[in-house]
């Protein structure tokens, strides 16, 4: 379970910002006053640190940090 979460946390920012990007390359819908592409990039500015924090917590719980 933890391993699966780790893989998800590590790969999500790459997949979202590199692989999925061509599909987010559009103007509509406008979310939070941002055209979709800009919203998508903004979203991952916020989500990436959260995923990083998730990884940090996972590592800590496994005693992998010193």
């Amino acid at each position: 379970m933890k391993k699966l979460l780790m893989i998800l946390f590590i790969s999500a920012p790459f997949i979202a910002q590199l692989v999925v990007l061509p599909f987010a390359n559009r103007i509509d819908p406008i979310v939070l006053g941002l055209p979709f592409l800009q919203f998508w990039l903004f979203l991952w500015i916020v989500l990436t640190p959260l995923f990083t924090f998730g990884i940090y917590l996972l590592q800590k719980s496994q005693g992998g940090l010193d």
């Binding site: 920012p13 910002q17 590199l18 800009q38 990039l41 990436t48 995923f51 940090y56």
Partner: peptide
């Protein structure tokens, strides 16, 4: 135009990788 936005995933991922 939006080519300039490459700087966003670039730096977001740079910090992520650096972790």
């Amino acid at each position: 135009g939006s080519l300039a936005f490459f700087a966003i995933p670039y730096s977001v991922l740079a910090y992520f990788i650096s972790y």
